[in-house]
Amino acid sequence: MTNDLIEYAVCLDPDTRQGISHAWCMTCGMRSQEAEDGAAVKHWCLGHADETGHKRFRAVVTTFLVVVPAPGR
């Protein structure tokens, strides 16, 4: 690795959607829809738990990054 890498920053990409979430039921494998609203995914988990009795879920939040050069690079 070179010192040139210090002249860059890793930032959230402003040109993409942020915080896309979804969840899987750890019992049966059913999966929620992807949503930018994390509350919608939690609501799906609650509904699935109510319908099935399943209580364990795996949640994933995806963010997108961009490498930005320092000024003058």
Rank of each mutant, 00 (worst) to 15 (best):
K42I: 14
V60H: 06
K55N: 11
W44S: 03
A49Y: 02
K42G: 05
G47D: 15
V67K: 12
R56K: 14
R31S: 11
G38D: 07
S21W: 10
A23E: 02
K55R: 12
Q33D: 15
M26H: 08
F64H: 13
E36A: 06
G47S: 14
A49Q: 11
H48C: 06
R56Q: 10
E51P: 06
V61R: 10
T27W: 09
M30N: 13
S21A: 08
A39S: 03
M26N: 12
H54T: 01
T63A: 07
F64D: 09
G19R: 14
I20S: 00
K55M: 09
C25G: 03
E51A: 13
T27D: 05
E36T: 11
H22W: 03
Q33W: 06
A49E: 09
A40I: 00
G38W: 02
A49K: 14
A59W: 15
S21P: 01
A40L: 04
A39T: 04
C45P: 03
F57I: 00
H48Q: 08
A49P: 07
S21L: 10
V66C: 08
M26G: 02
G19Y: 09
T27H: 09
G47R: 15
Q33C: 08
M30F: 06
S21Q: 09
E36V: 10
Q33V: 07
A59L: 14
T52S: 07
L65F: 10
A35I: 04
H43F: 07
E36C: 12
S21M: 12
S21C: 12
A59F: 13
M30S: 11
W24A: 01
I20G: 00
E36N: 08
C25S: 07
G19P: 02
E51H: 15
D37M: 02
C45H: 02
T52I: 02
G38Q: 05
I20A: 00
H48D: 08
S32Y: 07
V60W: 07
G29K: 02
A35S: 14
A59G: 13
Q18Y: 01
T52F: 00
G19N: 11
G47Q: 14
T62L: 05
D50M: 03
A49N: 10
K42V: 10
G47N: 14
E34P: 08
T27M: 12
A40K: 09
